[in-house]
Amino acid sequence: MFILNSGSGVPIYRQLVDQVKRMVAGGQLAPGDNLPSVRELAGTHAVNPMTVSKAYNQLEAEGVLVRRRGKPMQVANQVTEAETPRVMLEPYLASVVQSAEQLGLNKDELPDLMREYLDKEK
């Protein structure tokens, strides 16, 4: 369900938090959907259970997930406004801009480059 990479420089709990948010924003996880238990996730992905708990706690505090006694974590009914797909894409756009600058490209070229790239994808 999730892709957790070691060696990326992004802590595992952060990766988990970001992926759940993305899946909720993108509709892959719908309100009311259950998430795997801490044990399930820790066992299948071979990650520390405390890391999973930490991610779930943060997602709960941010209102993305809700915890109900003795039941799995669930996607909350209302996700906060700030977490729209557009807002969430911003860090990735920022890193594209940064890379472009490092490569000595003009920022104005970026829209064209993006369009060319998307055409190739088709």
């Binding site: 044990r39 820790a42 066992g43 299948t44 992905h45 071979a46 520390n48 259970p49």
Partner: peptide, 13 residues
Amino acid sequence: RRQFFQQLMDYAC
């Protein structure tokens, strides 16, 4: 190695 770590994390739960 992967199987071992999966088991280890299940155990740690």
